[in-house]
Amino acid sequence: MFPFNQLKTAALLGLMSGLIVLVSYILVGNEQGLYLGLGISAVTTLGSWYFSDQAALAAYQAQPLQRSDAPKLYDTVARLCDRAQLPMPKLFIIPTKSPNAFATGRDPQHAAVAVTEGIIDLLSTKELEGVIAHELTHIRNRDTLTQAVAGTLGGAVTFVGRMLSFGGLYYPANRDDRRGNNPIVLLFLLVLAPLSATLIQLAISRTREFAADEGAAQITGNPTALANALNKLETVGRQIPINGNPAMSPLLIINPLSREGLQNLFRTHPSTEERIQRLQAMAKQPRQLFAKA
């Protein structure tokens, strides 16, 4: 299943990059649009590769956390990193009572894990271990980089679409040199292209959460603890939503603002109920299938 997810993610990222090229080509109407789209795609991908961690941490006003600030948390992360065979990430604290956490960074050697004050207060030690293990799995699977690139490319599609659509009001949208604009082209640039980019980004995010939950169960040997944590995060998170850049919401362990019905299409995560059910099913399996320590 993991190789399939990797292949699907690569295909979705390629599709999003192609969408940027298509948006540029539609308005410019010649090969210059292709070059423009390729250039924007390359720059945004490279930028997200280098600066994804800084952007995510800044979006939630995360502050560096030293061992002297929270020795118990620091030692917990270190112990789980040892089990997962990962280097110790940088730790950050987010000054909010909303319970949540995320991991970021381009690779395990440049990774960071951020937790909110609310999640530390809310969860038990075992439940917090499950959350940390979930984030470490994202780091191990390189999901943090994938999400950063997807988010940046998605933002680029929206930005290019809006900027070029204004140009379409004054410059030709075809190979002729006739003035005017094409309403269908403008509709695509303003609505359909950004919507398509968002759906691609969300599809990438959802494919990663189940794998991270399973990885957390393997690292801790305790699927039930993460299931209990997710249940608490869903309940309390709705009461105290976290503030930050919506483009970074796929990084969070849970998005409590998701709803059923039509909005289910725009979920950044699978439903919490389904994640809990899967973890509970794992808990019924022999314990030696999960314990790594």
Rank of each mutant, 00 (worst) to 15 (best):
M1H: 12
Q6V: 11
A10P: 01
A11C: 05
L12H: 12
S17R: 13
L19K: 06
S24E: 06
I26T: 11
I26S: 05
I26H: 04
L27E: 15
E31Y: 13
G33R: 05
Y35N: 07
L36V: 11
L38Q: 08
L38R: 07
I40N: 07
V43E: 00
T44I: 11
S48N: 10
W49K: 09
W49H: 13
A56I: 07
L57W: 06
L57Y: 07
Q61L: 00
Q63P: 00
P64K: 03
S68P: 00
D69F: 02
D75S: 15
A78K: 14
R79C: 05
L80S: 05
Q85R: 11
L86C: 04
P87C: 10
L91T: 13
I93W: 04
N100L: 05
A103C: 05
T104G: 04
A112S: 15
A114V: 10
I119F: 03
K126E: 15
E127I: 11
E129D: 14
G130K: 07
A133R: 00
H134S: 07
H134E: 10
E135W: 03
E135R: 03
T137R: 09
N141G: 03
R142W: 11
R142E: 08
D143F: 02
L145E: 10
L145R: 15
A148Y: 03
A148W: 01
A150M: 14
F159Y: 10
G161H: 08
M163N: 14
M163P: 02
F166Y: 14
G168T: 08
Y170T: 11
P172E: 00
A173V: 07
R175G: 14
R178S: 13
G180I: 04
N182R: 06
P183F: 12
P183Q: 13
F188P: 01
L189D: 03
L192S: 05
S196Y: 01
T198Y: 11
I200A: 12
I204P: 04
F210C: 00
F210S: 04
A212G: 10
D213G: 08
A216R: 10
Q218C: 12
I219C: 01
I219T: 14
T220G: 07
N222H: 12
L226T: 10
N228K: 07
N228P: 00
T235N: 09
Q239T: 14
N243K: 13
N243M: 04
G244C: 06
N245I: 02
N245D: 15
A247S: 14
M248V: 03
S249V: 15
P250H: 03
P250G: 13
N255S: 05
P256N: 05
L257N: 13
S258E: 15
E260G: 12
E260H: 04
E260N: 12
E260V: 00
L262N: 01
R267S: 15
H269A: 12
P270W: 09
T272H: 09
E274A: 11
I276E: 07
I276H: 08
R278I: 05
Q280C: 00
A281Q: 15
M282A: 08
Q285R: 15
A293I: 03
A293H: 02
A293W: 05
